[in-house]
């Protein structure tokens, strides 16, 4: 759901840029305070994994494809603010090097896929984890549900920006975008739970490092 140039107007582009720059500044500050030495390779690995996995589009319904986002996985493994930095790095490289997502739309793309998705999934994950008294199953259930909502929220935000810009009417953009991403979100859930299970089985200590 990378927005190309031409779909959002200048006011929406500027507003989303300002919000995104503010959030990244906060993310730099928080990461600077929280990130430990042992998490350094994790941040590199996650950025690389999310980029590679985002290239692997899988078919969903109605001749449409979707791809993994990774925001939920990053938020669960390294906390939401560090996840914002990881997602922003991926989206900036995709935009500048691979022309995936428009230059003018970069702020909106980071806001949708790197900020809204991160916080939506993180707080759903945390809420379910706390509610179910924090065992391993609770982590996986929370991750799966959080991941699904991260994609749906991201797609809805994208539709709202397109509608505000007058590119497509609200009553078309929102149901169409949200509707298709209900299915893409299932893929997101499965991949997030699979990778998190792998981490829990092989290196559970990496998860304990996570700073709230």
């Amino acid at each position: 759901m990378h927005i190309p140039d031409g779909f959002i107007d200048v006011p929406v582009a500027v507003t989303t840029f300002v919000v995104t720059v503010g959030a990244i500044a906060c993310a730099v500050k928080t990461t600077n305070h929280n990130l430990g030495e042992k998490q350094v390779p994790m941040m590199g690995v996650l950025a690389a994994f999310i980029f590679a996995a985002q290239m692997l589009n899988f078919p969903v319904v109605g001749g449409t494809s979707g791809h993994f986002l990774g925001a939920a996985l990053a938020a669960i493994l390294l906390g939401p603010w560090t996840a914002v930095l990881i997602m922003s790095s991926v989206l900036v490289v995709q935009c500048l090097v691979f022309q995936d997502g428009g230059l003018l739309a970069l702020g909106a793309n980071i806001l949708n896929m790197g900020i809204i998705s991160v916080f939506v999934s993180y707080y759903i994950y945390k809420g379910i984890y706390t509610l179910l008294k924090g065992n391993k199953a609770a982590r996986l259930i929370g991750a799966g549900i959080g991941a699904w909502f991260s994609v749906v929220a991201s797609a809805t935000a994208c539709a709202i920006e397109i509608a505000i810009s007058g590119t497509s009417p609200w009553e078309i953009a929102i149901p169409a975008m949200t509707g298709i991403h209900i299915f893409v979100g299932i893929g997101e859930s499965l991949i997030t739970v699979a990778v998190l299970s792998l981490v829990l089985v092989t290196r559970p200590d990496l998860l304990e490092l996570q700073v709230a």
Binding site: T64, S65, V97, Q99, G102, A173
Partner: peptide, 30 residues
């Protein structure tokens, strides 16, 4: 990877606003 249009591309095609896409101003590995 599937080369089918993604969610946003599909919606744009179905509802006729895909023509609004501006070409990128520069290309490295498009």
């Amino acid at each position: 990877a599937s080369s089918l249009p993604d969610g946003l591309e599909r919606v744009a095609e179905d509802h006729g606003f895909d023509s609004k896409i501006h070409d990128p101003t520069f290309r490295i590995f498009p």
